[in-house]
C-alpha cells in the first residue's frame, strides 16, 4: 500500500526540478552591457581591455558581427551553457535579423568558458570550431593563469574565423590538434609548408597592392587601425537592441534583436 505513495514522491521530483529551474531563471542577474568588453570578474588590465575593444569594434565595422567578451564573478549556480545563452539573449547581441552575435564568456571562479554563437553565425562558426578555439587557444593559457593572454588569443581566433575562410581555419585548427595528439608530423609538416607558402604569397600580394595604392591598401589590410570605434559601437548596439519587443512575441529566427539558440561550445580548465 506504500507503493503508490513512493511513486507519487518520485513523480514530484521532476516537477520540483522544473520549479527549481524556473525559479533559477528568475533570480539570475546579469552585468550591464557597458561596452564590448564587460570585465565583471576584474581579470583584465586596462591595456588589454582597450586593445580588445579596438579589435571588436573593427570587426563590427568590417562585418557588422558583434563579438562581446564578458567575464563574470559567478555562474549563479547554473551551467555555463545556460548562463551564456541567457546573457546573450539579455544583451541581444548581433544585428536585428542577422543574429550575427558571438559571446565569449569566462567565469574564472567556476573555471568555465563558453563561446555562444548567434543563430546567424552557426554556419560560419560550427560547434567543433568553437570547441577547438577554446581547447587549443584559450584553456591552456587559462590553466597557466594567463587570462589576458587566453582571452586575447581566443578573440583573435574568433575574429579570424568570422572574417576569414572558415574552411581554411578548420584545417588549420585540425592541424594544431593533430600536432598535439599524434607523433606523426609528416602530414602536419606538409600543411605547415603550405601555410608558409600561402603566407609568402599573401605577403607578396599585399606588398604589391600597397605599392600600387599606398594609402588605400594599407587601410584595407589593417582594418583594426580604423578610427571612430565609439560611434560605431553605439549605433551597432542600438541596431541590435532598439526594436526588440519583448522575448515572447518574436517567432524563431526572424525575431527582434540578435538571438542565439545555444550554439557554440564550452570548456573547463
Amino acid at each position: 500500500m506504500t507503493a503508490p505513495r513512493h511513486i507519487r514522491t518520485l513523480w514530484a521530483l521532476p516537477a520540483l526540478l522544473v520549479f527549481v529551474s524556473v525559479a533559477l531563471a528568475q533570480t539570475l542577474t546579469f552585468p550591464q552591457l557597458t561596452g564590448r568588453v564587460v570585465d565583471d570578474a576584474g581579470i583584465l588590465d586596462a591595456a588589454t581591455r582597450a586593445a580588445l575593444t579596438q579589435k571588436l569594434a573593427a570587426l563590427e565595422t568590417k562585418s557588422t558581427d558583434q563579438l562581446v567578451v564578458a567575464t563574470v564573478k559567478s555562474l549563479q549556480g547554473t551551467s555555463v551553457d545556460d548562463y551564456a545563452n541567457r546573457l546573450f539573449r539579455n544583451w541581444h547581441l548581433g544585428q536585428q535579423g542577422k543574429n550575427n552575435g558571438v559571446l565569449l564568456l569566462i567565469a574564472p571562479n567556476d573555471r568555465k568558458a563558453k563561446i555562444e554563437v548567434g543563430y546567424g553565425l552557426e554556419g560560419v562558426m560550427p560547434d567543433a570550431v568553437a570547441k577547438l578555439i577554446l581547447e587549443n587557444s584559450v584553456a591552456p593559457r587559462f590553466r597557466a593563469n594567463d587570462f589576458p593572454g587566453g582571452i586575447s588569443r581566443g578573440v583573435d581566433d574568433i575574429i579570424q574565423v568570422l572574417t576569414g575562410d572558415a574552411e581554411e581555419w578548420k584545417r588549420r585548427a585540425a592541424t594544431v590538434q593533430s600536432l598535439k595528439v599524434s607523433p606523426e608530423v609528416n602530414a602536419a609538416a606538409i600543411i605547415l609548408a603550405f601555410a608558409v607558402m600561402a603566407l609568402i604569397f599573401f605577403a607578396l600580394v599585399n606588398y604589391h597592392s600597397r605599392r600600387q595604392t599606398p594609402g588605400v591598401a594599407r587601410r584595407d589590410s589593417d582594418p583594426w587601425s580604423w578610427g571612430s570605434f565609439g560611434s560605431s559601437w553605439s549605433s551597432g548596439s542600438s541596431d541590435g537592441g532598439s526594436s526588440w519587443g519583448g522575448s515572447s512575441d518574436s517567432g524563431g529566427f526572424s525575431g527582434g534583436g540578435g538571438d542565439s539558440g545555444g550554439g557554440g561550445a564550452s570548456t573547463s580548465w
Partner: peptide, 29 residues
C-alpha cells in the same frame, strides 16, 4: 583524441544545448 570523434562530440554537446534552449522556449510559449 581522434579528430572525427572530437568534432562529433562538440557537435553533440552543441546539439544538447540547443535542445535545452528549444525546450525552454517551448515551455515558455
Amino acid at each position: 583524441s581522434n579528430q572525427n570523434f572530437l568534432a562529433l562530440q562538440a557537435q553533440l554537446e552543441g546539439t544538447e544545448n540547443r535542445i535545452a534552449v528549444a525546450r525552454r522556449d517551448y515551455i515558455e510559449a
